[in-house]
């Protein structure tokens, strides 16, 4: 399968990319790593007249320390994020989610910002981004603005990025010393999760002092389960201590029904996987 014909530019600066986007409007499509876009173009589910490749903009690549946060460039490949020492130290939940995202070849090519901007509710990065309170830097012709993770994901495959804007970097507040786990339920290897739960906990002795919990594929956007986070605070990291909080994981969600499972099955999975994810994040037995 071959995509429909398109024109192609590969600007070398964000300014040039934004200008190209402004010029071509909704006839243009941004390509980051292309691991989601190219299959769509090949199946001709989309046929843009212009493809703007961000792959030659070096400033969009890399991870840096920024005081109380780390900043991940939008064009940083998953494989680089997954092996970055700053990510491992300060955003272990991101490292955990990236480790089993798709497969090795896709992780070499796919990018952190591309996956988030694609906003597939079954994608692995939205839940950790929401759980850790990430902030999204979005560049347009009027400059750069910042959007919180709570406001970034709007709907199915829809984000706060405007038609003439580009996601440039993602700022993740440091969660240094927190335990993290991404619990993913799949039928076969390298598939999108049927449901997944992202959990980070700050422990004080055997007690969960604070928790952050995000849900993958439990609605049209990645979700943050604040009711679970609140209920976990002060609980012992034991199966009994975590169970009641995990039972709240599906509250208020509207998960999809498809061939992999109906909504009720997904709600059940969310509760079970939340218990497992939190216990594993806390390093406790019984996960």
């Amino acid at each position: 399968m071959i995509p429909a014909a398109f024109d192609y530019v590969a600007p070398t600066s964000v300014e040039d990319a934004v200008a190209a986007l402004a010029q071509h409007g909704d006839e243009a499509k941004i390509i980051a790593g292309g691991q989601s876009l190219l299959p769509v173009l090949r199946m001709r589910l989309n046929a843009p007249e212009m493809v703007i490749d961000l792959g030659r903009i070096d400033t969009l690549r890399g991870v840096r320390d920024d005081g109380d946060a780390i900043v991940i460039g939008a064009m940083t490949p998953h494989s680089v994020v997954g092996s970055d020492p700053l990510v491992a130290q300060h955003a272990g939940l991101v490292a955990a989610a990236v480790e089993h995202l798709a497969d090795a070849q896709v992780r070499h090519r796919g990018t952190f910002g591309g996956a988030l901007a694609h906003a597939d509710p079954a994608g692995d990065l939205g839940a950790p981004a929401r759980a850790l309170g990430a902030e999204f830097a979005i560049a347009g012709s009027g400059g750069t603005r910042t959007v919180s993770a709570d406001d970034f994901f709007v709907d199915l495959f829809e984000t706060a990025i405007g038609e003439d804007e580009i996601l440039t970097e993602v700022r993740i507040p440091k969660h240094t010393g927190w335990g993290s786990h991404y619990e993913k339920f799949v039928r076969v290897a390298h598939q999108w999760p049927i449901v997944a739960v992202a959990a980070s906990v700050r422990m004080e002795g055997g007690t969960i002092a604070e928790a952050r919990v995000g849900l993958t594929n439990m609605g049209s956007t990645p979700l943050r389960a604040r009711q679970v986070e609140d209920a976990l605070a002060g609980q012992p990291a034991t199966p009994d201590g975590v169970r009641a909080a995990a039972e709240l994981a599906a509250d208020g969600t509207e998960p999809p029904s498809d061939l992999n499972g109906d909504a009720g099955y997904r709600r059940h999975l969310a509760r079970v996987l939340t218990r497992r994810a939190v216990l594993a994040a806390a390093g406790a037995d019984g996960a």
Binding site: G34, Q35, L38, P39, D53, Q105, V106, H108, R109
Partner: peptide, 9 residues
């Protein structure tokens, strides 16, 4: 590094 060449232009 390894990539799927059907998924690269």
């Amino acid at each position: 590094t390894s990539v799927k060449s059907c998924n690269v232009l």
